[in-house]
Each structure stands twice: as structure tokens, then as C-alpha cells.
Amino acid sequence: MKLGPRVIKTGIAVTFALYICSVLKLESAVFAGIAAIFTIQPSIYRTWKQVWNQVQTNFIGAIIAFLGLYFLGNDPFSIGLVIIILISISLKIKMGETISLTVVTVLAIMSAPGNEDWLFALNRFIVTFIGMATALLVNIFVYPPNYKKNYVKKVNEIFQNMSILLRTAISDEMTEKCFKEQMEQLENDILLLDEQFMLFDEEREKMSKVNNIDVREIVVFKQMFKSLQQGFIVLEDIDSFYFSSKPTPEENHLFDQQLEYLIKYHELFLLKYDGKIKMDLPSLEDEFMKHTEDFLEKVMQSYNEGHKIQMAVIGASIYNYAFQLDRLNTLIEHYLKKSQ
């Protein structure tokens, strides 16, 4: 079992939160650990946003809890009523994502042994904020996320898995069970990559002074995602339509060769971004799309002769894949030239 940085950081944040409470001799340190667990997020910005939102809702929750203690007491019915009021207010001010920790804070405050034991309630209120602050600091200084490296690594992993499926899609060499499993895994990986890109772009936009990232590179990363996404669509179209059209050996060879061609250049473009391909190589812009246009003409000719609408659908999907790759190549070249 592989432990990710977020798991490790959560454990460290809880440890430090409990330790700080122990040094300061604050009671109910467990609430600091709970606060640290709720606060840790996959990015520094989201952790900071979570802390800020929690500060606001916890402050509101603390006030409501203190008022509930003063006017209602701390019996189960009073605590339940206060929590209902608190959740309603949180949803009203659109802070629903912070409800869990805020409810914990209210429970911590209202579980004070007596209506007038304000120091006990205040202690738990402070302990909760120690947990949140510890989580933020740990997320900043311990295993700070390298968004660029992680994103590019994930792109290459997805491409390698997708290339195997594309190379065997027409020949139908993979078992149906294995193909379905690999397709499901590929779909999940692409969805995770999309989330990773949103984190990356959000971090760049919200924390540009801390993480100075070239906007042109963000555009390249977005196109990397689009290219993989379209490659997956090609696989879906082949799985849905290709074999029902009863392809001839010539059509099998035509589609198989075109996919092999696109996979080769997809890999080449990714290597170019990594700096492993010479920049002074001849431009591929004209040759690449001309090859794909010739392929599409042959597909349409086959469609006209046999009225195979399925072939036209798959051909258009492959053409779109080639278009996304061509754009990826252009963006990478522009970015590398500007960087140099």
C-alpha cells in the first residue's frame, strides 16, 4: 500500500496539534487533531481557503454555542437545537463545506460541564483553532505539492496506458474483460487528471505571487488533457461502432496504421515538451495533418462504397484526435521557443 503525501501530512499535522496542546497544557487536545484532519486539503490555496472559511463559521458557531449555553444550557435537546440553527445559518451564507468542523466546535463548547464554565468552553474553542493553524503550516512546509511535476508525470502514465489500448483496439487482441477494466481505469485516470489540472490552475491564479507559473505552460497542460480525452473518445467509438460495421482486412489495416501513426507522434510531442527531442527538427504541421486528411478521404471513400456510417463516425473521431495533437505540438513549440 502506497502512502500519499496528503496522508503523511495529515498524520504529521495531527501529531503537531496534539503536541502543541500538550506543551500549552490545554485540555481536550483531541479536538485539535480532529480540526487538523478536516483542514488538510490537496493544495495550499484550498487549505488556506478552508482555514479562512472555518474561522468565519467557527466564530459564528462559537457565538451561537455560548448563547445556547447561557440561555438554554447544555442538555441534549439544547445542543441539538443549536446545531440545527447553526447548520441553517451555514447553508444560508453558503459555507456548507465547513459544517462538519463547525458542528464539532459547537459540541466541544457546549459539552462544558456547567453553564458558567466559560474557561472550559474557551479552551476547546482555542484548541480547535490550533488544529487548523497546524494543518495549514504543515501543508505549506511539509512535502509542498509540486503541481507541474505531478501533472506531467500523470499525463505520461495515462498516455502509456492509452497507447496500449489504441494499438490493440483494431486487432482486437485484448480480452473483452481486460479491455473493459482498462477502459474504466483510463476513464477514472482522465477524470483525476482533470481535477489535478483544476487544482494546478487554481493555485496559479490565486497564489501567483508564491507560485510563479508561465500562463503559456498552463495552456500546454490544458491541451495535453484535451489530447488524452479525445484519444479516449476514439477508443469508445471503436468499441461501440467499429466491429458492428464488419470491417474488411483493408479497413483494419487502414485504421490500425493511422492509430499507430498518431500514437507515435503523440509520444513524440510529449518527449518534445520534456526537452528530449531536438527543436531544430523539420516542422510537422503540414505533413501531420496532410497524412490525417488522406486517411479521412479513404475512410469516406469506404463509406461511399459500403454505406458504413460507423466508419465515418470513427474516422471523424480520429481526425479530431489528430487535430488536438497538432494543436498540442504547436503550443509546445511556441512555449519552448518563448522559454528559450
Rank of each mutant, 00 (worst) to 15 (best):
D194G: 07
P76H: 08
L67K: 08
V82A: 12
D172E: 12
G275S: 07
A312N: 08
K206M: 09
Q324T: 12
S43Q: 04
L137P: 05
I164T: 14
M300Q: 12
E267H: 15
F77T: 14
F141R: 08
P247S: 06
I89Y: 01
A17Y: 08
I109E: 01
Q185K: 11
R167T: 11
I238H: 09
L328A: 07
P247M: 00
E173M: 13
D75M: 10
L284N: 10
K246R: 15
Q54P: 12
V142L: 05
I87S: 02
S100M: 14
L191T: 13
L91K: 15
V23G: 08
A29M: 14
L259R: 03
G68P: 01
F323D: 13
M183R: 04
V313Y: 09
F288N: 08
N211K: 07
N156K: 15
Y45A: 04
I34R: 02
Q230S: 10
F255V: 01
L284E: 13
V14Q: 05
F120W: 15
Q160D: 15
K149A: 14
F255P: 00
L67W: 07
G68V: 01
P145Y: 01
P144A: 06
I126R: 07
T39Y: 05
G33K: 03
T175P: 15
A322H: 02
N156P: 05
N139I: 01
W48I: 15
H307L: 15
K149C: 08
Q340M: 11
M162P: 01
L325Y: 02
M1E: 12
S245D: 09
C178W: 13
A322V: 03
I89A: 00
I170W: 01
R167S: 11
Y321T: 02
F243D: 01
L107S: 13
Y335T: 00
V82Q: 03
G96R: 13
K25V: 07
T10H: 05
I63R: 06
K149R: 14
S240Y: 15
W118C: 05
V155Y: 06
Q223M: 04
I20V: 11
F141Q: 10
V106I: 11
E203S: 04
T47F: 07
D194V: 02
A135R: 10
A133D: 00
Y261K: 02
T292C: 06
F66V: 13
Y45W: 08
G73F: 04
Y45S: 09
R204Q: 13
R167D: 12
V219E: 15
E195N: 13
Q257G: 03
I34S: 04
S227V: 03
I89W: 02
P145K: 05
E195C: 05
Q324W: 07
I332H: 07
F16G: 06
S245H: 06
T175V: 11
V152E: 15
I332K: 04
K222W: 06
K154C: 10
L284P: 05
N329Q: 14
D256A: 12
E184L: 15
L86G: 07
Y147Q: 10
M207Q: 08
